[in-house]
Amino acid sequence: MAEHILDAHELDVDEIRIPRENWFESSETLQKLRKNKKFPTIWCAGCGNGIVMGSLIRAIEHLGLSNDEVALVSGIGCAGRMPVYMDFNTLHTNHGRALAFATGLKIARPDMKVIAIMGDGDALAIGGNHFIHAARRNIGITSIVINNAIYGMTGGQYSPTTPIGKQATTAPYGNIEPSFPLCELAIAAGATYVARSTVYHVLELDKYIEAAIRKDGFSLVEAVSYCHTTYGRLNKFGTAPEMMRDLKKNSISKAAYEKLSAKRQAGNSKIVRGVLHVNDEREEFTKLCRKLTEQAQGGGRQ
C-alpha cells in the first residue's frame, strides 16, 4: 500500500483535506507565478521551502482572500526568500526583523492579514526577542517558521534548533547547546494558536496555516523541513527524498502521542504534529490599542 496512505490512518479523518480539484490551474497566484521571470526559485533542488510555499498559496486560496488583503513579511535566509516569488504585498526586511516590521505594519493596517515567514535562525536566534514579544502582545500576525535546524543560506552554521550532537560548520565536533522548542516557547510567551507539522505531511500544513491566518491573535505554524545541502550533507542524512522519508518516520500525530503511556511520552523523540495550543480568551493587540485610543479621545475632554 502507498506509504502516505498508511500515514493518513494515523490522522483524524478531518485532519486531511484533499486539495481542491485542479487547484494548480485555478490558482491565480500560481498562474502569475508561472509567468514570473523570477522562477525557478533560488532554492536547491528538493528543498522543503518550496513545499511550504505551495501550502501557503493553497491556504490563502482556500480562505478566498484577495492578493491585496495579504501582506507577506520576511527577513533574510533561504526561508526568507519566499515572499519574493509571490504576488501579495511584500516586505523583505533585515535578518531577524520580520516580526518587528510586521508589528509596525499590523498596527498601521489592522485590517490586513499579515504573515511573517521566517527561518529558525531568523525567528529564534537574531530575531528571538521579537518572537517572544510578538507572542506576549498577542498581535494579530501569522508566523510561519520553516525549521530546518540550521542556517541554510550562510552555509550550515548551527541554529537554536540544531539538536545536540549534530554537526554544523560552526560545530565540527558536534553541537553542545540544547535547542529551543519553538512551539513550546511560543505557547509560554502567550501565542494564541500554535500548530506543527512537516513538509512530508503538507496537507496538514495547509489546514494549520489556514487556521493560523483565521486566528485573530499571534499564531505560529512550525513547518519542520530539511536542508539536505548543508545540514544533511554535514550529518550524512542523504538526499532530499531520504530526508523527506525521515520526516515521515520520525514524526507522530498528536492524537497518537496522547495515547502513549506517560513513560513513553517522556521518552518520545519524534516530532509531534498537530494543533498544540489554542487560546480564545486573549484579546488581540491592535484591538486593545484601538479601544485605548477611543477611550483616551472620548474620556480626556470631559
Binding site: 485542479n22 494548480f24 528538493g46 521551502n49 513545499i51 505551495g54 501550502s55
Partner: peptide, 18 residues
Amino acid sequence: GCHWCDTHCPDMAIVVRR
C-alpha cells in the same frame, strides 16, 4: 490522481488533473 506529487513538488513543476 492522489495529488502527492503536485502538492509536494517544491518547484510547482508538476500538475495532476483528475
